[in-house]
Design a protein around this nucleic acid. Sequence first.
RNA 1: CGGGGCAUAGCGCAGCCUGGUUAGCGUGCCUGCCUUGGGAGCAGGAGGUCGAGAGUUCAAAUCUCUCUGCCCCGACCA
Length: 477
Amino acid sequence: MSKTITRQSEDFSRWYTDVVQKAELADYSPVKGCMVICPYGYSIWESIQRELDGRIKATGCRNAYFPLFIPESFINKEKSHLEGFSPECAVVTHAGGEELQEKLVVRPTSETIIYYMFSKWVKSYRDLPLLINQWANVVRWEMRTRLFLRTSEFLWQEGHTAHATYEEAEARTLQMLDEYASFAENFLAIPVIKGVKSDHERFAGAHRTYTIEALMRDKKCLQAGTSHNLGQNFSRPFEITFLDNEGKTQYAWQTSWGVSTRLIGALVMVHGDDRGLILPPAVAPIQVVMVPIWKNDGQKEEIIRMLGGLTTDIKNAGLRVEQDLRENVTPGFKFNDWEMRGVPLRVECGPKDLEEKTVVLCRRDTGTKEKIPLADLTGKCVELMPVIQNSLLERARLFLKENITEVNNKEELAAVLEDKGGLVSAHWCHGHSCEDIIKQETKATLRCIPCDAPTEMGSCVICGQPSEKRVLFARSY
RNA sequence: CGGGGCAUAGCGCAGCCUGGUUAGCGUGCCUGCCUUGGGAGCAGGAGGUCGAGAGUUCAAAUCUCUCUGCCCCGACCA
């Protein structure tokens, strides 16, 4: 393994792969397109899970678990769902040494199997709303894969709900979109744009798809989460019906929503720099790392004792702290190593500090080093956590803002996408052919119709037909 | 599925064109010494079906053929 990672400016894509592997987030598996999530990477996922699971439950959902295998006929029940997913499904044809009577699809998403069960569970309007979430792995046989961003198997949570009215389902769809946006911004320090997908980019089987879009440091966009209003598209084929309070049979109105391990890829690409990962304190598995420095055995003992005391203090203050007592590597190596892993704060403690009753505190996000009196260390660490968290969010917000460009014609749109990159805000007629022309000519896709876009009369940058809102286009992952 | 490339130690590579001692280098790993305030140094050591199969030859990592796998570009894509 080489000592340095590729610079972002040199090759962002290689930088990303280097960081993911060298920070030990993930590794390539022997199975094509699949990845191994390493302990450090998995602890980030656990951190995401813990927080998001709490937020989801707070909205009234309960966790459940549905099978990995779905009867092939289930996938076939909803036409656009089938068309969307069947090309990328892994299918089990044999088991127990025999050919199966009905093939089993390894879930690419669980709408069908969950709604089969919903049809058994929902009988009365009193059973609604039904609010279920599951944490699971799903499989989609992608042609081109990238660690965390698109792998054949990935981990996610998928929420599935059933409601008595369209309005309730729409409200739940938007509620979860807001939860995701709030989670991304406040926990991951990733600012996002909330919006609606075009008909073309809509989830296979959905009535309407909402998205949160984030901008990576290479100015490419990433869909960081989605929330779908499914209408009655699934409740009809799966016969999820209930008797309303007038005794009439009604089909349920449904939603589904999810975020995945892709969020880890977003964390890397939104905050990272040439030294590696930068983790916001809220999500960081290790928030403070303690590095001892010594010249001889006498000092070593004394410094380790002092470090141990400080570590306990910091831990008791509620922070996630770890000591790096490895003896076979130098302090310099450790500095670089922990910077690679994105730990927000590093405490250096050596002979000089012992003498002066201080330590050196180094911030990962700014790189600044500060000499701190021993007595002030814990307080300072606690105080810096929200400061760093906020500083990362503000930095990312500014970057996002600076990289949304309004354009008013096709030439401008192409030029901005080519030279500046980022998101372009343009008028569009809602026609699929215009969307497609832009994709063909600029490789940019329609990311979303932003929820907060003001009404503004204009004309489609391709066909010139009237438009009431600007929408966002960008090249994306 | 179309175009291009690669396959030799855990990882990254050289050797192949022009066949010929015991297949080498960097890094990582192990042991010891010495070091430690920004990726230390020295010494010793372990580690190889040279992707698989067949052929040519006295002799194949090296030449020929077949197969397999992977990577890049395109096409495709929640």
